[in-house]
Amino acid sequence: MTEDAPAPLYSPRTVRDLMQRHGIRATKSLGQNFLVDGNVLRSIADAGGAASGVSVLEVGPGLGVLTREVAERGAHVVTLEKDERLRPVLAETLAGLDVEVVWGDALKFDYDRLPDGTRVIANLPYYISTALLSKFMASARIVSATVLVQREVAERLAAKPGEDAYGFMSALAALHGRVRIVRDVPKGAFIPAPDVTSSVVRLDFTGFEDSGQKPDARLIRLMEAALHHRRKTMRNNLRMAGFDAGAVEQALETVGLRADVRAEDVALRDMHRFAQALGVLA
């Protein structure tokens, strides 16, 4: 009689056994929801381009389920983990794989230490997902990020000017490249189940309209100020941020925008022209 094959690492039975043997409870304050759906796991790795020789950054490996899937495809993985309780778990689940675990806060990590061409593939802690995405976009080392986030965040990232979900993160993502929502992920794909539906989203940092250039920091600051308060006019937002009201009105007129326009309705090309007319950009 043949023995049953061991359950895969992502199976609910294996995950519960790991948590029980190591005395682990998912910590809500750290955004811990462990993935237990093999189809979702493979779709993240596929969409992220995990393959032999690829450098991958992961944030929040948890029990190492996604980490192992990516490393077993031949990628070299650097994974950032803050929760020291997971040391013995990851020592077990990642044994023998090309994985470097860096213990500490991902928001304080030096992303310049990564090799050029790094791809992020991660189930991000939801409570810091937008802060992390901003860091990924800013890094010259990272070329793409395929991440599991709250569906609301994915929709904001992919939104276009004039759409309800459009805001500063939408503009920031578009200025850095392209965004594609890969798939939705139900609550039941995790232990414990989160309160919301999640989505896999891929961001390619190819520059605005594939220019290959990082956006000017001055334009980013202007966009952040212009979009700071939704439903307020761009003129009022910028005035509140310290810009001269007369100069703003003149720049709006110069580029053919209404005086009462809201920044969430302005195309990025027009915003760039406005920044030039205002003297923010040359």
Rank of each mutant, 00 (worst) to 15 (best):
R230C: 07
R230E: 09
R230H: 13
R231G: 15
R231W: 14
R231E: 13
R231T: 15
K232I: 11
K232D: 10
K232N: 11
K232L: 11
K232G: 08
K232H: 12
T233R: 10
T233W: 12
T233H: 11
M234N: 11
M234E: 11
M234R: 11
M234A: 11
R235Y: 00
R235N: 04
R235D: 05
N236K: 13
N236S: 13
N236P: 09
N236I: 07
N236M: 10
N237V: 06
N237F: 05
N237M: 04
N237G: 08
L238M: 11
L238T: 09
L238Y: 02
R239P: 01
R239F: 08
R239S: 14
R239V: 15
R239G: 13
M240K: 15
M240N: 15
M240V: 12
M240R: 14
A241F: 08
A241K: 11
A241M: 10
A241S: 14
A241H: 07
A241W: 07
G242Y: 08
G242A: 05
G242P: 06
G242H: 01
F243A: 00
F243W: 12
D244R: 10
A245F: 02
A245L: 06
A245W: 04
A245Y: 06
G246V: 10
G246A: 10
G246R: 10
A247C: 05
A247M: 07
A247F: 05
A247S: 10
A247Q: 07
A247P: 04
V248N: 01
E249H: 07
E249D: 15
E249R: 13
Q250N: 12
Q250W: 04
Q250C: 06
Q250G: 03
Q250I: 08
A251E: 02
A251K: 05
A251F: 00
A251R: 01
L252V: 04
L252A: 07
L252Q: 04
L252S: 02
E253H: 11
E253L: 10
E253I: 05
E253D: 13
E253K: 13
E253S: 14
T254L: 02
T254A: 15
T254M: 03
V255A: 03
V255Y: 00
V255H: 03
G256I: 01
G256N: 07
G256S: 01
G256V: 07
G256T: 00
G256L: 06
L257Q: 00
L257M: 04
L257V: 00
L257N: 08
R258G: 00
R258T: 02
R258Y: 04
R258S: 12
A259K: 03
A259Y: 06
A259C: 03
A259H: 01
D260Q: 06
D260T: 09
D260E: 09
